[in-house]
Amino acid sequence: MTDLNTAPNLTDADGFYEALIAAHEGLTPEQSTALNARLILLLANHVGDRDILLDALRKARGTGR
């Protein structure tokens, strides 16, 4: 089984974080939730692999611990 890569992998961690928050600027909570949903779907498709996605769902559901 392939595992989700949870080692640092972002080329510019701070830059990405800033862009993520900026993408939500000026949105209502509903609009933000919708954006997040679209983002998850886009990224999930990029990952593609079913095992990795299920592993990610498990890890996310476990609140990071």
Binding site: T33, A34, A37, R38, I40, L41, L42, N45
Partner: peptide
């Protein structure tokens, strides 16, 4: 509610992005 959000997100993306159509 969240299932509704994802459903609408899929429909929203489907027009421009082929990947969302099988969903």
């Amino acid at each position: 509610d969240i299932s509704h959000v994802f459903r609408d997100a899929v429909l929203d993306l489907a027009e421009a992005h082929p990947f969302a159509r099988p969903l």
